[in-house]
Simulated assay, not measured.
Amino acid sequence: MGTSLTPEFWERFVLLLFAAMGVTIVLTALFDALALRIARRRAQMPPAPPPAQAPLRSVETGRRTPVSH
């Protein structure tokens, strides 16, 4: 038992297809704008201070550092 696709089906199909395309385009534009806003905020933030480093040892003692193998 075969069914035929009526003109009413194609009208609804085209309507739903264009509605889905419109929603997709709008949501893509919104998410792109949101991602761009986040990226710009991160670029404007001051850089984090470098972590504290351990003090360097003085090399002026005249002794060599022992190396173990």
Rank of each mutant, 00 (worst) to 15 (best):
S4V: 06
L5N: 07
L5F: 11
T6V: 08
P7Q: 12
E8D: 13
E8C: 05
E8R: 06
F9D: 15
W10P: 04
W10L: 12
R12K: 12
R12C: 08
V14I: 11
V14S: 09
L15V: 08
L15H: 02
L15Y: 10
L16K: 12
L16D: 14
L17T: 12
A20V: 07
A20T: 04
G22D: 07
V23N: 05
T24K: 06
L27G: 11
L27D: 15
L27E: 14
D32M: 11
L36E: 14
A39M: 11
A39D: 15
A39P: 02
R40V: 11
R41V: 13
R42S: 04
A43R: 15
Q44S: 10
M45R: 14
P47Q: 15
P47T: 12
P49A: 03
P49F: 00
P50Y: 00
P50N: 01
P50F: 01
P50C: 01
A52D: 01
A52C: 03
Q53L: 03
A54L: 12
A54N: 04
L56C: 00
L56E: 02
V59L: 09
V59K: 11
V59F: 08
E60Q: 08
E60P: 00
T61C: 06
T61R: 08
G62Q: 06
R63K: 11
P66W: 07
P66K: 10
P66N: 08
V67S: 06
S68D: 13
S68Q: 08
H69K: 06
H69R: 09
